[in-house]
Design a protein around this nucleic acid. Structure first.
Length: 115
RNA sequence: CAGCUUGGUCAGAUGGUCGCAAGUUGAGUGAAAGCUCAGUUUGAGGAAAGUCCGAGCUUCAUAGAGCAAGGUGCUUGCUAACGGCAAGUCUAGGUGACUAGAAGGAAAGUGCAACAGAAAAUAACCGCUAUACCCCUGAGUGGUUAGUAAGGAUGAAAAGGCGAGGCAAGAGCUCACCGCGAGUUUGGCGACAAACUUGGUCCGUGUAAACCCCACCUGAAGCAAGGUAAAAUGUCCAUUAUGGUUGCUCGCCGGGACAUAAACACCGCUGGAUACAUAGAGCAAUUUAUGUACUAGAUAGAUGACCGUCAAAUACAGAACUCGGCUUAUAGACCAAACUGCCAC
RNA sequence: GCGGGUAUAGUACAUCGGUAGUACGCGAGCUUCCCAAGCUUGUGAGGUGGGUUCGAUUCCCAUUACCCGCU
C-alpha cells in the first residue's frame, strides 16, 4: 500500500485532475496527470463498479497500489489519478508493473525528465 | 457393499523479504495539538451479501387519543423481541428414514365463477310419469295440469357415493356399507384423536394469496441518527402565522424556513440480551450456576505483493453503529445418526 | 451505508384474474415514370424461478437487472 503522504484524498482534487489533466493510456488502465500541489508525487486510484464485485475491485486497487509503491521514486512530481479498465481484473501484479513502467517512459513522466 | 435422508464441523497451513491500519512502549522534535523514527501486539465472513423481519441506541413530547393504513394467523412452549426457533396436531408427497404447508371464518355482508352448458346457486329447459286431481273424449293413447333431481354432449366444479328395496315415474322415500354434521364419554395443558349415540332440511358449491369479518401486533425517522467545538451573507414569514411530531383530526413543543458560501475536527465507535467448556432443569428450543476467553474500528476508506514447502490450493465472497433471525450464493474435505436394497453368517 | 421505485413487441406506453392492445418502426402489396406521402395487409412481447387459483401480465414469495433520493 502507498504511504499516506503519497495518496490523494479530497474529492475536490480528483475533480480538478479529471477536469484539467492530460490523459495517458495503457492496456489495462489510464492515467490523468497534472502539476503537483506538493513537493512530492500524489496518486489516487479509481476502480469503477463495472470491473467486478467488491472483492475484485479491492484486489485491482491493491495491485495497482503495490506497483506504484515499488516505483514511487520513478514518478515525476505531479498528481495522478489511475483509473482501472475492465480488462484489469485478471492481470497479475507483474503485468501491471511492466505496463506502468512502459507508460512512464512513453509519456516522459520519469523523474529524470522532470524539470 | 451400494443408494438415499437428516444433522454438524472446516473454509488453507507454514517459513522468508518488502509494505498498509490501529493500539501500545521508547527516543527525537514542538508552546500545544501533533509529527517522525525504532520495537512490539492485533488486524475481514459463514454468509461480512440481500436489506426481508425483530430489537438495542439516538432525536422528535413524557410516546399521548381517535380514525385510516399495514402486518401476522393450527396448538403449546422458548426468547429482549420477531414474520424466528423447538416439540406436537392436521393435510399432501415418499416403500422408508423423512420432507413441504400464510393451515382462523364462506351460516355477518358484498363481489366474481370467462367459454361451454338446461342450469354456476331460492336448479324443471329437454326428458320420465299420469297414481290422485282438473278439463276434454266413444275410449286414454291427449294436456296452457300435476308429480319427478334417475338420464341429458358441457365444465376446474353440477346439489353426498355405491348397491338393494320401493314407486305411476322417481327421489335418503327406506335399508346395508362408506363419507359428512351434531351430541356424549374417555385421553390430552391444547390443537386434536378414539369410542358410542344420533341426524335424511345431508336443501346455502367454490374463491378470503377478492373486498371483508374476527383475534393479536405496530407512534415516526434513522449513525448521512445525534452530540461537543467552530460558524459568514442574503431572502421570506412572524403567534388566527409558520415549522416539527404521522397519512388525517385532536393534542403537544419551538421563533422558524429557504438559498449561497465555508466546514466536515472530535465524540458516537465497539465488552456484549457475547462465545466456549463442565454440571443442574427440560423430549427439545432454551435456561441457571461455575470457570475460561475476548484486543478490526478504517474515513478516497487498512488485511496486500513476491519466493519456497505441504499430491492440489481452487468455491461463494470484503467490516463501515451493534446484536437475534430469515433468505440467497458456495469448490473441496471430514464426522455422526437413521432408512431402503443386495450379499454373507 | 440508508431509503424508495420500475421491468410488457425493435422503441414509447396501455390493460378489472378469463385468447394482451395502441402508436411509431420493420416486411409485403397497391398507387407513381421513380422516390416521398397515402391506402391495404402481415410480423413481433409479459425479466427469471416458485406458490395461491379451474385459470396469473395481473395476487403472494424469492431472485436478477436498471433507475431515483439522502453527501
Amino acid at each position: 500500500m502507498l504511504q499516506r503522504l503519497n495518496r490523494l484524498k479530497k474529492r475536490k482534487e480528483f475533480n480538478y485532475i479529471y477536469k484539467k489533466g492530460q490523459i495517458a493510456h495503457a492496456d489495462d488502465f489510464f492515467v490523468h496527470y497534472v502539476r503537483a500541489f506538493k513537493p512530492y508525487p500524489q496518486i489516487g486510484i479509481s476502480v469503477s463498479k463495472q470491473v467486478g464485485n467488491s472483492v475484485i475491485r479491492s484486489r485491482v486497487k491493491r495491485i495497482i497500489s503495490e506497483a506504484c509503491r515499488l516505483n514511487i521514486d520513478k514518478f515525476a512530481v505531479k498528481n495522478y489519478v489511475i483509473t482501472a479498465k475492465e480488462s484489469a481484473k485478471d492481470k497479475t501484479s507483474l503485468d501491471i508493473e511492466k505496463q506502468l513502467l512502459r507508460l512512464l517512459k512513453k509519456y516522459k513522466l520519469n523523474r529524470e525528465n522532470d524539470v
